[in-house]
């Protein structure tokens, strides 16, 4: 799967979790850029990503996430 198609799939997940059809994400997007992306919704998002991509994250990987770009890279190593 290319980075772009991961990003497209991720965008849909973001839209579903944050209940906002207009969300647009890119590699530089951080939690600061999206309303409602806080410690409460973060794990719902992670769990949904695991389910959709059929992967499993390690806690260590999540601790080092800085932006959506990092997330895409980690997903790419697992699919």
């Amino acid at each position: 799967m290319t980075k772009n198609s991961v990003l497209v799939k991720l965008t849909n997940i973001f839209r579903e979790i944050f209940n906002d059809r207009e969300i647009v994400i890119n590699n530089k997007t951080t939690a600061q850029d999206i309303d409602n992306w806080d410690s409460l919704t973060h794990m719902l998002l992670i769990s949904k990503i695991e389910e959709e991509f059929e992967i499993k994250f390690k806690l260590k990987e999540l601790n080092n996430l800085n932006n959506v770009g990092n997330l895409v890279e980690i997903i790419n190593t697992k699919i």
Partner: peptide, 25 residues
């Protein structure tokens, strides 16, 4: 507390959706 207690607990309970988050809190 968020980084070293809440996050590990909620990560462990992440398959339980909103219930997992409430239990973590």
């Amino acid at each position: 507390i968020t980084d070293y207690i809440y996050t590990p607990i909620t990560f462990f309970l992440r398959k339980n959706g909103l219930f997992g988050i409430i239990l973590s809190l």
